[in-house]
């Protein structure tokens, strides 16, 4: 069941990552169009504002994919010197701390969106973008990251308790470091 959960999470996050990439490519295309239009003496206007929103949303939604790909950098000095059980303890501890921190970030992001909703805030730019429009997907991204983190932690915990250390290390270990290279 744990493996199935991890598989589902990986699949979903891969899909999300591809969508983010498409949004990034679209953003590059808009920037490019603006550069060309400027040479022709006109302008789309507001491309850097849009780039900012894209960056914020892409960042929050991409975090979960990177987590499952073991992409968030960790230092392996002590952990690499311990055995199977030691590594599992390090990994579970790191995952619990990460999940807690990310949850706090997600919870603290809500007041930002709430105030934009309450004030009907619009960006201080000619586009007058309603901030809630772009902060909602940004906020949802952090919620998603927190959910992915806790579910991954739970799945890894089950694997460790079952003694399946190799599988748990695949899910929450350190990538590209001493012990995988050895």
């Amino acid at each position: 069941m744990a493996q199935k959960l991890l598989g589902t999470l990986r699949g979903l996050n891969k899909l999300v990552a591809i969508l983010i990439g498409i949004v990034l490519l679209a953003c590059a295309a808009i920037v490019l169009a603006d550069i060309v239009l400027r040479q022709l003496g006109s302008s789309l206007g507001g491309t850097d504002e849009i780039s900012g929103y894209v960056m914020a949303i892409a960042t929050s939604w991409g975090m979960g994919y990177t987590l499952l790909e073991l992409g968030h950098v960790r230092i392996d000095i002590l952990r690499g010197r311990t055995g199977n059980v030691g590594r599992a303890v390090f990994d579970l501890f790191a995952m619990a701390v990460l999940s807690g921190t990310v949850t706090l970030i997600a919870l603290q992001s809500w007041p930002v969106l709430a105030r934009s909703l309450a004030n009907g805030s619009r960006a201080n730019t000619p586009l007058e973008t309603p901030l809630a429009l772009v902060q909602t997907p940004w906020f949802a991204g952090w919620i998603w990251f927190a959910a992915v983190a806790w579910l991954t932690f739970a799945a890894a915990l089950i694997l460790v308790l079952r003694g399946e250390f190799r599988q748990s290390e695949e899910a929450i270990g350190c990538f590209g470091e001493e012990e995988t290279a050895r």
């Binding site: 780039s51 603290q108 940004w138």
Partner: peptide, 26 residues
């Protein structure tokens, strides 16, 4: 200060300059 966390996360990532990072990596 933790009350500022959400605003900080928003305004750090809502940044047109940083979009150069994914572009160069791509």
């Amino acid at each position: 200060l933790v009350k500022g966390l959400g605003n900080l996360v928003w305004s750090t990532s809502n940044n047109a300059t940083l979009i150069a990072i994914p572009f160069f990596v791509m």
